[in-house]
Amino acid sequence: MVPLNWYLMLSATVFMIGVFGFLTRKNIIIMFMSVELMLNGVNISLVAFSHYLQDLRGQILVFFIITVAAAEAAIGLAIIIALFRNKSTAHVDEMNEMKG
């Protein structure tokens, strides 16, 4: 049986890849994918704990997250397409309307 730590390390690695991807990449699609990676990293740890603790509630939460992520992907991509149509670019540095 694979020990819990291994799962957690995998989860942390995937999550951190997501974080760094989000912080360093400038293309908005890739940043979006990084967010999905972070979510999946969390999902892995949830499933691992669920199995370890023999508690199904963790897996229920994972389903919930997957559903939300799917919805989020749909809306997020739609927003990105709208943005692209407006700005003709997917580069985040071009999008600073919120500058104070």
Binding site: F22, L23, T24, K26, V92, M95, K99, G100
Partner: peptide, 17 residues
């Protein structure tokens, strides 16, 4: 203090992280 609001998403995310 409005200078902090650069408008770049990744700056906000970095500060958050």
């Amino acid at each position: 203090i409005r200078k902090v609001q650069t408008g770049f998403l990744q700056h906000y995310a970095t500060i958050m992280a």
